[in-house]
């Protein structure tokens, strides 16, 4: 196995294109190095992208917040503007792993690892984040939602690299929230993850809403009909009850070592309801 540390994206793409199979991108390494411990792991090339200019930076541009692919999640919480704009995204990213993992793990890695239970992915999908992709055939921008296509599978072509995640500037009176269920208080993979983004009208009613459910299907589930139930309401109890039931219905989980189908469906509704209330309250606190 070779280890390479290119200084430009072009070089990184070139290296990956030359070794399309059995090559890996290394940013935080918190998933890749775990896989490398396995006796069966075999690879020809690891491309460390951390020394490429901009990969470790958060920039605020006309397009919104551009978060480099190698920005460790701990750094997100240190960016006051980002926390103020998208608390739901930052809190989701900050739930990944321990303090030690936070120093290394990245949202881009979380997205490209394509794990169904990834914490930051429902939050990114709920805010309709985009990703900037560079590759041998040129650059493209696609919704974050379209990167994972199934457990461990992405839509990236050989040689392509996600260079950054772009979060739009939130509309006025927008709130976001992410809640997950884990059996312990820390260190677990989400059994259920729910992200909600709401924008309020001047009268306090919900103008628009987007909901994303994680760990309850092979990909993030976006129950638009459930989200629509919130629009035009002030999240009264009756609306929330219907919303909760709709989110439970939308969930299509499996039984595994982390939870049962019945548990996950029920808790998906509970947490979606709670996240909606938090997002609604946060929307009221913003200008």
């Amino acid at each position: 196995m070779r280890y390479e540390r290119p200084e430009t994206l072009e070089d990184a793409v070139g290296l990956l294109s030359a070794t399309p199979e059995r090559s890996h991108i290394l940013a935080g390494g918190t998933d890749l190095l775990v896989r490398m411990k396995n006796d069966d792991f075999d690879a020809d090339l690891v491309v460390d992208i951390k020394r490429i200019a901009g990969m470790g930076e958060i920039a605020r541009t006309d397009a919104g917040f551009v978060i480099g692919a190698a920005v460790p999640c701990a750094k997100l919480a240190e960016d006051a503007a980002l926390v103020a704009a998208w608390p739901g995204v930052v809190e989701a990213a900050n739930l990944i792993g321990s303090t030690q993992i936070q120093s290394r793990c990245t949202m881009t890695g979380n997205l490209c690892n394509a794990g169904p239970a990834a914490d930051s992915v429902p939050a990114l999908v709920a805010v309709d984040a985009r990703v900037k992709i560079v590759g041998p055939e040129g650059n493209r921008i696609i919704p974050a939602r379209d990167v994972p296509v199934g457990p461990g599978q992405t839509s990236l072509a050989p040689g392509e690299i996600v260079a950054a995640i772009v979060l739009p500037e939130p509309a006025p009176q927008t709130g976001s929230a992410y809640l997950r269920f884990i059996p312990r208080t820390e260190m677990d993979i989400a059994v259920v993850g729910t992200a909600v983004v709401l924008t309020r009208d001047a009268d306090g009613t919900v103008a628009s809403a987007r909901v994303a459910l994680g760990a309850v299907g092979p990909r993030v589930i976006v129950p638009d009909d459930a989200a629509q139930m919130l629009v035009g309401t002030t999240l009264d109890d009756d609306t929330l009850a219907r919303f909760e039931a709709a989110c439970s219905d939308a969930a299509t989980p499996i039984d595994d070592k982390r939870g049962t189908v019945a548990f996950r469906k029920e808790v998906a509704g509970v947490l979606a309801r709670r996240a909606a209330k938090i997002a609604y309250d946060r929307a009221g606190e913003t200008q």
Binding site: P183, R184, T185, E186, D188, R258
Partner: peptide
């Protein structure tokens, strides 16, 4: 210990064999 239908241990690590952490 969680076993699959195949009799294989599903959680042979501290990630899914959940001992109490400090915040618990």
């Amino acid at each position: 210990y969680i076993y699959g239908e195949d009799g294989r241990l599903q959680n042979a690590g501290f990630l899914d064999y959940r001992i109490p952490v400090c915040s618990d």
